[in-house]
Design a protein around this nucleic acid. Structure first.
Lengths: 206, 206
DNA sequence: TAGATTGTTAATCGATTAACAATC
DNA sequence: TAGATTGTTAATCGATTAACAATC
């Protein structure tokens, strides 16, 4: 029996479930029904049950889902039962904020390398991270075996940076620059341009 | 003949088209085919044509779409043919970076108010923006008539902040805090937790 | 037991794609 | 004209929801 593929749209929701379960766990909740969880994540109870059924049978009839066990299962499925090193490119205001953001470490990610092409920034320390010269990017990422990149450069630089990240062996890119990236098949890209959701909302505002 | 509703999923793509068209316009491109645009946004040409047909008949047979005209139509549809004031709550590293981000002004948004509850931050200047006390939030947002809020506080504070934004008349919230917000019917919320897309990608990494 | 809740099926709903007539 | 490209239809594909048997 072949292991069923989890649809992309479900994969997109899994981290949201995990986040909610971690919050519940902190609050001491041990068990939660799909109906109650529905209120906490904004998806329907039926969808939650269907989504969870793709990762296993964790629910208890009449009781709901065991929070801790399910969170662990989700972490395993999402491969965040380990810590991923991330390379950050671009240490302007945004890059700086990202380098200092505590939320990564707690949830499976660690900014291990930071690059900027501005000589004035190279050598600067952010916590115990030292900003390195972008010229060393490929070499340094290769030798550290980093597989995830974060782009926080201006839009003009982003495509070139992406290509060099790929060249260095990076397989997933989180792009803050407001531009679509063209990457080889198999390289994942996610976008976080804050203007996109803002404009989506203003469509509905008058 | 009733004006057809534009499906949510299409609305979500419209800002991405607009962003691409603005980049093309800067590059001096006057006309672009759905096929060529497909490469620049990552959606299929058929989908692009179908999406564009929901906002009007701008295409020219044998030629493609007029970039400037279409961009203007998109701006009108998205209601970013004006400038929206935004209230920012939470001026830590991230909030600070957002307050200084130039990309908003160029694309229809202006941080008009910034709040923090930390007395050490109140009164600080970021550009020509003065950080105000969160205690004044409802009053100040009301008197300025601001309709959009951005939350960049820790997760623990976000729900309370959201409720006060709604109380102040805010109708759309961009939430950077890693938590689901519960808001009254009719209030829009978009989420920008960077860990969510990272975990989505690690699902596919080994 | 009675009450609650899962996991799953079938039905519904919605989105994407392929194809092509129309035509600049 | 010949070549290119739109706008739209119909077919396909996929996701969500409602409902309920199973059962703790």
């Amino acid at each position: 029996m072949k292991k069923k593929e989890i649809p992309r749209v479900v994969v997109r929701r899994l981290p949201i479930y995990l986040r909610a379960l971690e919050t519940l766990l902190e609050g001491g909740v041990e068990c939660i029904s799909s109906q109650e969880l529905s209120r906490q994540v904004g998806f329907s109870a039926a969808q939650i049950r269907k989504d969870f059924s793709t990762i296993g049978e964790y629910g208890r009839l009449g009781m709901g889902y065991p929070v801790k066990e399910l969170a662990e299962a989700l972490r395993r499925r999402l491969h965040v039962d380990r810590v991923w090193d991330v390379a950050l490119v671009g240490v302007g205001d945004l890059g700086h904020a990202l380098a200092r953001y505590q939320g990564f470490a707690e949830r499976g990610f660690r900014i291990a390398l930071a690059f900027d092409k501005d000589p004035a920034k190279v050598g600067a320390k952010i916590g115990n991270l030292v900003v390195e010269d972008s010229a060393q990017l490929v070499e340094r990422i290769r030798e550290r075996g980093v597989k995830i990149g974060m782009i926080a450069t201006p839009a003009e630089a982003a495509q070139t940076v992406a290509e060099r990240l790929v060249q260095a062996g990076v397989r997933a890119i989180l792009n803050y620059a407001p531009i679509h990236l063209t990457v080889p098949e198999g390289v994942l890209v996610e976008y976080l341009d804050p203007v996109i959701p803002l404009q989506e909302m203003t469509f509905y505002l008058t």
